[in-house]
Nucleic acid binder design. Sequence first.
DNA 1: GAGCACTGC
Length: 713
Amino acid sequence: MPSMAQGEHKSFVQNSKPNPKSAFSMRQKIAEHRRSLPIASVEKRLIEEVQKNDILIIVGETGSGKTTQLPQFLYNAGFCREGKMIGITQPRRIAAVTVAKRVAEECEVELGQRVGYSIRFDDTTSSSTRLKYMTDGLLLREALLDPHLTRYSVIIVDEAHDRSVHTDVLLALLKKIQRARSKPVGEKIEFGNMASEVQTKTRDANGPQQNGVLKGCQGRKLSPLKLIIMSASLDARVFSEYFGGAKAVHVQGRQFPVDILYTVHPESDYVDATLVTIFQIHFEEKPGDILVFLTGQDEIESVERLVQERLQNIPEDKRKLLPLAIFSALPSEQQMKVFSPAPTGFRKVILATNIAETSITIPGIRYVIDPGFVKARSYDPSKGMESLDVVPASKAQTLQRSGRAGREGPGKSFRLYPEREFEKLEDSTKPEIKRCNLSNIILQLKALGIDDIVGFDFIDKPSRGAIIKALAELHSLGALADDGKLENPAGYQMSRLPLEPVYSKALILANQFNCLEEMLITVAVLSVESIFYDPREKREEARTSRNHFASVEGDHLTYLSVYRESDEFLEKRKAAGSGNNIDKIMKKWCKENYVNSRSLKHARDIYRQIREHVEQIGFNVSSCGNDMLGFRRCLAASFFLKAAQRQLDGTYRALESGEVVHIHPTSVLFRAKPECVIFNELMQTSKKYIKNLTRIDSLWLSELAPHHFKTAE
DNA sequence: GAGCACTGC
């Protein structure tokens, strides 16, 4: 072991001005603490502000109670008259569920009555629901069916600082809807008409009767819509400016003070610095668990190993330190371990990715170690390529991380860089909309009747190049006509499916190729994280299992056989009379076959949902049986935009971008190296890798996508 | 022969 000597010691300096707004509170024991929440004292004022202002920005730190209390205040003040609802959006499913449950408890109603939540695959709302918690993505979907969101009197967009694509698009849309709802219906409004017109042809069976609603309101005003944007931290000004100088109200939070400490000098090796700091805290600080923010699985696993190694070299009475890893790819049973209290006398050190920044809250944390980096996804529209890079965290992220030390008592945050480096960080993370593929978003906007995408009023405008690229892709897929308007019916059908546009297109084609059943399964599996466990898994049984499913034709057919075999197993068990617990049976099968049960369950949910959708469109779900040649031709026709040809040196050239790429080691075609393939994903990590491929005949491309390959011959 | 932060419909 290198000289990670015990004597090594890092000097930290206290930051010059203590963070004034650090007062997190413990997880509130709900009912008894309601009155003591900071927001309780400003109920009257908040209601007045909402009555006076159509748009209100509320800046509230964690622990203010805004998410649980404000909707109740509004309900009591009469904002749900005439059956109207208050919608509260969250960026994450788990938050929508837990908050709704808590509020139902506080209101002493059954979940799904006055208070409910609705997230994909799980809707607890009923006709009596007035406070509806949901994900922002779900509300966007609702807007496709009801372009004025007429059932809502108030919409609260919570955690707007998150700046997810969904939040950004939703805010832009709500701005438009609010304007439309303040005008008499007879007047021409900027969008919605076209969408509702076409809707009569393609509307979901249970969609609201939009035309009827509009007719009934003829000559009258739609009721106005109140908009409340809730955000933590620095970004309030951005939202206020976007909404024409909207009023912003601050609500005090509740957190314990967190001392911020910086290193005196920059650290050249943050893994090493992390290790030193962990032991320094362990030896010198009072009891309390440590939370370390690292960038990924590999890093976490190596720090875990290093901590274990080092523990062997210190006196036995000081070894009471328990390292635990948490990241999203970790099976949930192992994730749960970080939540159980450490054995008596032990100190936990949680090695986490960003998952611990917002998604989960671990009790007992008093110390945070923040090396100041994050792994971020970015997208290069010109090459159609994603990449994952380690980049410096933003100020907002860094504050959020430090706050994790002050939820249960005063804490300390150790930043592994000097204070002057903090000042150089970006204020906040680049909004996702500026670093992702826009084809899906643009398809949604087009379906809402918004045709001028370049001129659309985004909070942060995506680059022109990214917009053009997405428009071109949608045009190639047949979703957009030459004039840039949505094709009827294909474009509308595609916008209704909760899938990447290219997968929706694949379903439309599969309907024509008579292999819709196979394609439904394939795109469901492609829509989830890998259904195979960690491919680094070298155990013999795991390899055998993967080989058992592998198809020489490629990954798509491999996924098909995994899904089908799991399904057959389930059917057999059901027929044998033991079909009571589907989840349990599937888990057992997954374990035996080294398949990720979380992913497979998710794929099955998606399959069920999109099957319903295509049946509503009027497609007949038929199977091509054993005609895998026909199915591969359909895959080629669907994914022609992403084809690659083998070169003499064994590398591949992506036909669209001209990039030199490599087959990803997780592909079943990694060794076979067929002459021509279609693929679904192009990602740069250590190399430019293509993932999820199927072997095709290169002649199929010009035959099946002549509009795209006419010059190729 | 090598590797994937986190969400969401």
